[in-house]
Design a binder for these strands. Structure first.
Lengths: 340, 340
DNA sequence: CTGAAAGCGCTTACAG
DNA sequence: CTGAAAGCGCTTACAG
């Protein structure tokens, strides 16, 4: 009996009548090895259920088999999508995934990350928005020799260090759709100041309006914080104003759902009285009534690509993957305007 | 420059003019050490920014500083709550958190877990429902000498291996509240077959009804799968029937929200025409209209307690913590029945 | 194609 | 209170 997984390379070597080195070669699938020796050793390994000790390997190899996601993002759905994507990316490899949240508003955020990097020395890390736009943190990773990829809405680093979604183009498309449906007075509820994604989505909105030669006045843009509550409040302020828009583009789904609640309270019918488009395509967006028309954000695919890059033989192979260009999911929250 | 974090215990020993062992003693906060030596060594360590190599420590110590959550639970909110709880539990320690999803329906689930355990040798793991009720998997952990804790709704293992919520009592309380509000025809939408939590919640419902001497017929219980879609379908089947209940206890919030959509489609007003209580208290439950009355499930606290136990000096200290006894969150989805 | 020696960076008895 | 030696379980040049 005894515990599993406690036989060592020495046991295998002794039983197989070869040197440790030879065993090591079959573990690491080295090529200089006769088929006969290999299969003999493999049989012994299978027989005694030998598995190399990961800590010993890591020490000798000078790197472990761990990648991590470092984030300061409270959104559960987003986080799990990222994790699932990364997990897909490392599937079949020897790597595992660690999770390390940090506190964006803390002045010691760099120390928190230093601490994590020192304590676990992950082979690579994925930095999620919004902290991914912090250059210092990226440099910190580099200073430890840790591979890193940043997820963002613009290319704020070298190609091998970035995985990008083109939020601007996607929003422009969504707002253009609203315009094509006959809307002219289209409001925007934007994301929090300082978030690159918020700025990009706003830029997409402005571009679409500009191309259609539709005016954008200050009162058409309401601040938000990417939270349900902030969406609700923005909705209240827009819907209680004298001149209401016929459509609102909301910078994420959670806020869009807040707006829907505000509208319902006021007996404003969606989509007949008010059209709404969100951004993210969270599962939730199809679970509200009416189901929300939204822009699909391929977080899963982005995270997968990032993880693959992190554990690739050479990270340097620049990947010019830009995700998300046209990804409008039309559901039930937009109606055509019948011009009088 | 050169990378950070690449000085070794030897550098410190040389610079401080002591042996490696002495340095090791200060790292590990051993007591047999003069204050003078200790502070001298600490200064050197701080000066050169030395941090012990985690892989080397793990190898010598014969265990690393990683705990993991192993799960087969698709619910993002649940998963993130667990992760946050565990992270709180290990805060300030040297431990870090890994995440390993497995496929419940796969015949090779044991192999997936074996693989993970062998590859990373985590110091401890938390098993989440529903796979937490699989005794084989728990034994598998034990066979590798890996500490484990299982999260469940009943005490299906020794006290040190379990963290429990008393779903049955909590549901009984919720249904009793419905009864006190005058409801007699109370339907149940239950969780999936084979889930312990589903059976416990159903038992709580049945107990409450029995104590109030209210009949429970077969047609009052509708199956569900803990998903929005299954809740919606169950809602449709209940609300399209001839004899409608005045209240429904739904075994989780996601399904409850599905029921709300089904009700709205049929112009059934909540709570005036139909009262609903859910279970979980997900953030979402207060973001719907009307806000959902529900049972608060303290996943975060449970996960924290489990993580603390996993990294404790002695796991054996049996913790008889049972979470959740009375945790009804009254919001807007229940109305009093005015008896005629 | 195969092996003996040294090394990765720590900690653990055992002495003194 | 402090240290020299051996060991944790692997891999890496270097030989042959």
């Amino acid at each position: 009996m005894g515990q599993r997984g406690n036989s060592t390379i020495n046991d295998v070597a002794r039983l197989a009548n070869v040197s440790k080195k030879t065993v090591s070669r079959v573990i690491n699938k080295s090529s200089h090895l006769s088929d006969k020796t290999r299969s003999h050793v493999e049989k012994i390994i299978a027989d005694i259920g030998y598995v190399p000790n990961p800590q010993a390997r890591a020490l000798a190899l000078r790197h472990n088999f761990i990648i991590a996601v470092i984030h300061d993002n409270p959104n559960a759905q987003f986080l799990v999508s990222v994790q699932n994507g990364m997990l897909e990316g490392i599937k079949g490899s020897d790597y595992g995934l660690m999770v390390q949240p940090v506190n964006r508003n803390s002045p010691t955020i760099a120390d928190e990350i230093k601490n994590f990097l020192e304590r676990h020395r992950p082979y690579g890390v994925l930095l999620l928005p919004p902290i991914s736009d912090n250059d210092e943190l990226a440099e910190l990773c580099a200073s430890y020799g840790t591979r890193y990829v940043r997820m963002a809405s613009i290319e704020l680093d070298a190609p091998e260090h970035i995985v990008t979604s083109n939020d601007r183009a996607a929003v422009e498309e969504a707002v253009t759709y609203l315009i094509e449906e006959g809307h002219e007075n289209i409001a925007l509820i934007e994301g929090p100041k300082g978030f690159i994604s918020a700025a990009e989505r706003r830029a997409g909105y402005e571009q679409a309006m500009a191309k259609a030669k539709l005016p954008v006045t200050k009162d058409m843009i309401t601040p938000g914080a990417y939270t349900f509550e902030s969406g609700y409040e923005a909705g209240v302020s827009i819907l209680d104003a004298d001149k209401k828009p016929t459509a609102i583009f909301v910078a994420n789904d959670e806020m869009a759902i807040g707006v829907m609640i505000a509208a319902r309270e006021r007996n404003i019918n969606i989509p007949d009285d008010l059209s709404i488009i969100g951004f993210d395509d969270t599962p939730l967006s199809s679970h509200v009534w009416p189901p929300l028309t939204t822009v699909r954000w391929p977080i899963n695919a982005m995270a997968k690509s990032a993880a693959e890059r992190l554990i690739a033989e050479k990270q340097n192979v620049p990947s010019k993957d830009v995700f998300l260009s046209s990804a409008l999911i039309k559901r039930g929250s937009v109606a055509k305007i019948i011009k009088v």
